[in-house]
C-alpha cells in the first residue's frame, strides 16, 4: 500500500471507518440511471470505460459528496454533452419543464 492513490476513486488502503453492513434499496431513479448506462452501452453511445473516466474526473470533493448513482448521472451527462448527444440548453429547458409539471 505504499503507492500514492491515482485519484479519489483509488481507495484501497485508505483510512476509513467501519463498514455499514445494512441493506439499502435501490431507488427507481437509480435503476433508471443503471438502465440508461446499459442501453447506451448496448447501442454504442457510451462505454463503461468512458463512464469510469467521467467518474474519476469528478474531483475529490464531488467524489466524496455525491452518492453512487449521482456520480454515474454526472459522469454520463458530461460524456453525453462531450459527444453532442445532448446539449446543456436542452437539459436546462427539460429540467425546467419537468419541475413545472408539479400539480
Amino acid at each position: 500500500m505504499s503507492a500514492q492513490p491515482i485519484g479519489p476513486h483509488d481507495l484501497g488502503g485508505a483510512q476509513a471507518g467501519p463498514v455499514e453492513t445494512g441493506e439499502h434499496a435501490v431507488a427507481h431513479w437509480e435503476k433508471q440511471v443503471d438502465a440508461m448506462m446499459t442501453l447506451l452501452s448496448e447501442r454504442g453511445h457510451l462505454k463503461v470505460d468512458e463512464l469510469r473516466r467521467g467518474i474519476e474526473s469528478l474531483g475529490p470533493d464531488a467524489y466524496e459528496r455525491l452518492s453512487y448513482y449521482e456520480r454515474w448521472a454526472q459522469s454520463m451527462t458530461a460524456i453525453l454533452l462531450e459527444k453532442g448527444i445532448v446539449t446543456a440548453e436542452a437539459i436546462t429547458a427539460k429540467v425546467a419543464e419537468i419541475r413545472g409539471r408539479q400539480p
Binding site: W29, Y69, A73, M76, T77, V86, I91, V95, E97, I98
Partner: peptide
Amino acid sequence: HMALVAAVRELL
C-alpha cells in the same frame, strides 16, 4: 441529480 436524470432520460 434526480431532475438531471429525468431530463437526460427524456431527451434520450
